[in-house]
Nucleic acid binder design. Structure first.
Ligand SMILES: [Mn+2]
Ligand SMILES: [Mn+2]
Ligand SMILES: [Zn+2]
Ligand SMILES: [Zn+2]
Lengths: 151, 151
DNA sequence: CAATAAACGCGAATTATTTGCAATAATATC
DNA sequence: GATATTATTGCAAATAATTCGCGTTTATTG
């Protein structure tokens, strides 16, 4: 992971097309140092992509695990590059100024002193998976069963 | 924590008023077994509270830490009773059917086999706190500094 | 009981995100 | 390289969750 990853190949491997728009999107995400909003991303792309298109691309990429959606409790989503471009990790967000610091995922986060943060006032941790019933039902073709509609 | 907590006192201790609406809200939350949406909560209250009022109450309560906002990646928030009524914990949510299971917070979550779930496909973990700059600045009267407006 | 500020309902406004649809362009095939 | 197939795109309109303004009610305090 020395130079820039081959995004074109990465996109195609996920069953997508390497369009100029998505390539720019990947490169823009690659440069980011912290999760960004769709709106900010669009600006950073010089408005190259329509916002609706951008959301669609991000959704597709998140679906494939190439992009990770992050919730900082701001009322909107943030996105960042995930595997295989970037190693799995978590975040520490400042509720005061919005500063974000990466945190390694030890799955044993007895957070030690961190350089840029003084206090940890709260944390969120949610696990996602399949209950036995759904797991037994097998990977229903197409994935997602429960859409969340109405709840 | 044998019987029902004294919600009236709990509300007043947080600088709020023990209105019939908020008392019913607390009792409704107390009965819930998993985080619920504002809309669902309103129904469970028989529409006793206006949705806007409900959101205002939930915000205030979350502010005081009495209520915890949970993100299950459904595009809307879920709420549940927190301290001192309920012990701190986390969740395991089924992306298939939406089933939710509580997970103890060991801060060392090497998730062992759990009863109702077969697989854990993903998890989210975000920490919140204050960076050194904000921490040094002290608890600005009123709390929140960064509103997230515009980002 | 009167004063004060919190809480309420209602309707309108915001915001993030999604969708329908017709036009384009990337990939696979020939 | 030309062609068929299908994903992607832009744009405008639609949703859905959450918030706000404001005039009215009511809990709390003394
Ligand atoms: Mn990160
Ligand atoms: Mn719970
Ligand atoms: Zn800060
Ligand atoms: Zn399930």
């Amino acid at each position: 992971m020395v130079g820039t990853p081959d995004f074109a190949q990465m996109l195609r491997r996920c069953g997508g097309r390497a369009t100029p728009g998505r390539l720019r999107l990947m490169r823009a995400l690659w440069k980011e140092t912290a999760p960004v909003t769709a709106a900010r991303l669009q600006k950073s792309l010089g408005g190259a992509l329509n916002l609706a298109t951008l959301y669609r691309a991000l959704d597709a990429l998140a679906e494939d695990g190439v992009v990770r959606r992050v919730d900082f409790r701001h009322g909107h989503a943030h996105y960042e590059l995930a595997a295989p471009a970037r190693a799995h990790h978590h975040h520490l967000a400042c509720t005061g100024c919005g500063a974000v610091e990466d945190v390694a995922c030890t799955l044993r986060p007895r957070l030690k002193r961190t350089s840029a943060f003084s206090t940890i006032t709260d944390h969120a941790m949610e696990y996602f998976g399949l209950c036995k019933a759904c797991g037994a039902r097998g990977p229903e073709r197409g994935g997602r069963i429960w859409t969340g509609a109405g709840e």
